[in-house]
Structure formats: C-alpha cells, structure tokens
C-alpha cells in the first residue's frame, strides 16, 4: 500500500509520518505542501520526498492520503484527493463549517473513496478501558461527564493556530472536537443542546483574533449532560503540552480517565524545569493502523466523515452560543 501526506501545516504531521512508516507493507511516498519552505523543511527533517505540487503527488497514484492542512483548508485538498480516487484520512476538525464537512462527505461518497476523520483518542488504551467500564453498565444510569482537553497555545509550533481565518477559531476550534467525539462514542447518543462561554485573557500577548479560554456545556439526546473545558490554560513552560481527561458520573459510581497520565516526570539541570515524558501507547498509531486496515479490508473506517461533521457541528454551535448567550439546538438548520 502506498500512502502520502498532503500539506504538513498541522503539527500532527510530524508524528503521523513516523506512524505511517511503522505500518508493515506500507510505502510512504512523500509529501506536498503549498508552502514550499514549510514543505522543504519537513521533507529534509524527515528524509522524505517533496512533490512539487498536490497534482504531482496525486499523479503518483497513492492508495490513500493524510490531509494535514490548516483547518479551513481541508476542503480543497479533500476534494482534490477524492477526485483522484484516493482514500482520505483528514486531520481534525474535519472542517471549520458544517457545509464544508457535508461537501467533503458528499464528494467522497460520489468518488467511492473512504473519508476518515483523525480522532486518535478513540485508539488511546486508557480511553478504551474507560469505555469498557461505561459499556459494562456498572455505572448504572449516567448523570453527567466532566471533561477537559486543555493545552498550551499552539502558536509557537504553528502560527496559523491563532489565525482566525485559517484555524476557524481558537481554543474552541482546537480542543472541542476530541471530547465531543469521545462523548458521542461513549454515550452512543447525539448532542441536542450546546451552551458555551469564551474569553481571551490567556495568551493575550499571542493573539487578539481568537478566544483562548472556553467552557462548553452539552446536553445529549439520552438526557446525559457534559461539560468540555477547551481552554489553552497550560502555560508554555508547563511540563507537557496539555492533556485530555474525563470523569463520568452515574448512579452506580463514577469512572475517570486521564489519557496522558502514563508518564514519567524528569527534572534536569539543563532544562531547569520538570517535563513529563509519556510512556503510554501511541494512540496515533492505532488511528493510522485503522485507516490502512479499512483500505486493505475495503470497509468503512471506524471513524467516518459523519463523525467529523457531528463534532464540527458542536463547535459551530458553541461559537454561536458564545456570541448570543443562548442555548443552541442541534442539528443546526
């Protein structure tokens, strides 16, 4: 199987290339990027081929591509790949608008190619273990879920994360979709109401365009409520980039999962501050493996474009709620 990456704008591309190379019998072809300097730097760093254009990359007939462009630029690349008959794993959020998501899903359906949304946390062993507890019914009736996906502002890794046009927003756009997707998956229910409050006090020196703090309240069709803290509340010098945690509370008890708790803390004279080094399993590898497997077995991937759309819909609703102060009902018109 031959795979490639279209755009390395998203910092996850740095990890994905290693994941791709780790899959047996997968040939990694190379990358293309509309930002030549960015593409060159990436190609050099990872010793891979830089195609001169997306067309050139697609002309090489890969079986599948990863789309890792800026959030608002997923659409053109997905359409281009679909037209070339290439299966697609698209970075999250699938798009910054529900319309873009729908256009992508329709185009992939017409072209008969797979569209998978990159929600790697579904492959995190701690997240899977907690889902097993939920599925066992031991919690009884579930009341609510208190969840966090906080981080430091990713501007230093990629400046476009605080560019409202390219990113589609700030912390809410960056950090809401993972937990929305996990909650839909855990609860087997759809979000029917969204309320959100945002502010821009954190990292005020890094951006005046996008929100850096956000608290979102969700109500699911089955009556369960949840909150998501998507804030960029971790300082730059925090021991790690951030984290993802959930507490699921029910009549029969509660379960907690901290997806990045498996780490060692390292203090070194050179660094002058502690850092966490993770030793847990790499969830991204599970994501890439599933994409490859879905192509090999010619089946629908476990996470679809529709899952990406439903997560984006919550983000769009959250922005609408934060703007109006009102609860926003889903599905959106």
């Amino acid at each position: 199987m031959r795979l490639a990456i279209m755009s390395v704008a998203h910092l996850h591309a740095d990890g994905y290339i290693n994941n791709l190379r780790a899959v047996p019998d997968v040939e990694f072809l190379g990358i293309a990027d509309d930002d030549l300097a960015r593409g060159q730097a990436f190609a050099e760093q990872h010793c891979t081929r830089l195609y001169e254009s997306y067309d050139a990359l697609l002309a090489d007939k890969p079986d599948g591509v990863l789309v890792c462009s800026e959030n608002a630029r997923h659409l053109p690349l997905v359409l281009q790949a679909a037209e070339a008959g290439v299966h697609i794993l698209c970075e999250k959020p699938l798009a910054t608008t529900v319309e873009d998501c729908r256009t992508m899903i329709d185009a992939c359906e017409r072209a008969g190619v797979k569209l998978m949304t990159a929600f790697p946390m579904r492959f995190s062993p701690p997240v899977i273990e907690a889902k097993r507890v939920v599925d066992s019914g031991a919690l009884g009736r579930i009341y609510g879920c208190n969840t966090t996906n906080q981080g430091s502002c990713p501007k230093d890794s990629r400046a476009w994360f605080v560019d409202k046009e390219l990113a589609g927003g700030g912390a809410v756009m960056d950090h809401t979709v993972h937990l929305t997707d996990l909650l839909r998956w855990y609860l087997n229910s759809e979000v029917v109401e969204v309320f959100a409050e945002t502010n821009a006090i954190l990292y005020a020196d890094a951006t005046d365009e996008v929100e850096t703090g956000g608290l979102i309240s969700l109500l699911f069709d089955n009556g369960v409520f949840a909150t998501i803290d998507c804030s960029w509340s971790k300082p730059k010098y925090y021991p790690t980039w951030g984290g993802l945690a959930m507490e699921i509370v029910g009549e029969g008890g509660f379960t907690t999962v901290d997806a990045f708790r498996q780490k060692i803390t390292v203090y070194s004279h050179d660094r002058g501050r502690p850092v966490y080094k993770p030793w847990g399993s790499d969830a991204d590898q599970g994501l890439i493996n599933e994409f490859v497997a879905s192509i090999r077995e010619d089946r629908v991937p476990s996470i679809t474009g529709y899952d990406g759309l439903k997560a984006t819909e919550v983000v769009v609703a959250a922005y609408r709620s934060a703007e109006t102060g009102q609860v926003v009902r889903l599905p959106l018109e």
Binding site: N146, E197, N199, T227
Partner: peptide, 23 residues
C-alpha cells in the same frame, strides 16, 4: 434521582469564567 450531580459555568463581570462541579 438516586444521586445528584451538577456542572455549572459562571461568567464573571470582568470576563473571567469559572467551571463548578458539585455532587
């Protein structure tokens, strides 16, 4: 309901936000 649980979001006048979990 057998138990009670609440997740609240407070908006402060100065723009700060607070999440309160109680149960």
């Amino acid at each position: 309901a057998a138990g009670d649980y609440c997740l609240a979001i407070l908006r402060h006048k100065n723009g700060a936000l607070t999440h309160v979990e109680g149960g």
